[in-house]
Amino acid sequence: MVDAVTPRGPKPRRRFSRANVMLYGTLIVVAAYYALPLYVMIVTSLKGMPEIRLGNIFSPPVEITYQPWVKAWAEACTGINCEGLSRGFWNSVQILIPSVILSIAIASVNGYALANWKFKGSEVFFTILIVGAFIPYQVMLYPLVIILRELGLYGNVWGLVLVHTVFGMPILTLLFRNYFTSVPEELFKAARVDGAGFWGIYFRIMLPMSLPIFVVAIILQVTGIWNDFLFGVIYTKPADYPMTVQLNNIVNSVQGIKEYNVNMAATLLTGLVPLIIYFASGKLFVRGIAAGAVKG
């Protein structure tokens, strides 16, 4: 009768003990606070301007209108240009797809080389890469302008793709290196005995085995690149501005009357892509940021 002497597991608690009510009460209030901005954005984007001027930002819309969303997408102005956010959206897509593919392709091969094909100096370069992740971007912005100009890529989308690849490299390389290091070495040795080379092992053994880590990397890169503002504003011309930059220009433009409902619809539209990824991916998103957290 061991159980009678040493109780196992958590102490049974009454559901409505005072401590429990306090705990859930606090959590619900805090959760309401975190959810509030999203709620305010949604209700504001569904109201007409007269209702916004009279009412209260927390009250639900009396008369729901989708006009602000249409206007934000197709008609909102930045300066003299009135094409709406749609252009920024497609620019972001054009930046996003090659950046995600290129950065992950390069970083996964880097990680694979670092884990399984160490060569003299490879650890030194990796250390520089990881330390480099802590250098403020501002220090490297102008040298990159010069490099891109020399390559003829300054001010176009491919230049920005290169910048995202460079600055995404430390964290992604770390992610892949750690994953490939955990793959049993016997597998690698067996493939070597069978005569498979660097690329053969990468494509036929490592790649099929590491799909989950690729999904984590994709989540990390899609949200990171979509949310970027700094690189977009510096390395592209206004015609190629990503969605975040265009959003800021629309909302913070000084001309004209402020249409808060359109602004909030535009803000939500820009936040939609990372939000959908976040809510759809759940645990994998957490795994991605946890991987990002343990750099160094």
């Binding site: 503002f229 602004n263 909030m264 990372p274 939000l275 976040y278």
Partner: peptide
């Protein structure tokens, strides 16, 4: 969820609130 949003979106939302 706010961590999934960009700083631009965060800043504009709070500017409005």
């Amino acid at each position: 969820y706010p961590f999934a949003l960009s700083f631009v979106v965060t800043g504009l939302a709070w500017q409005w609130i």
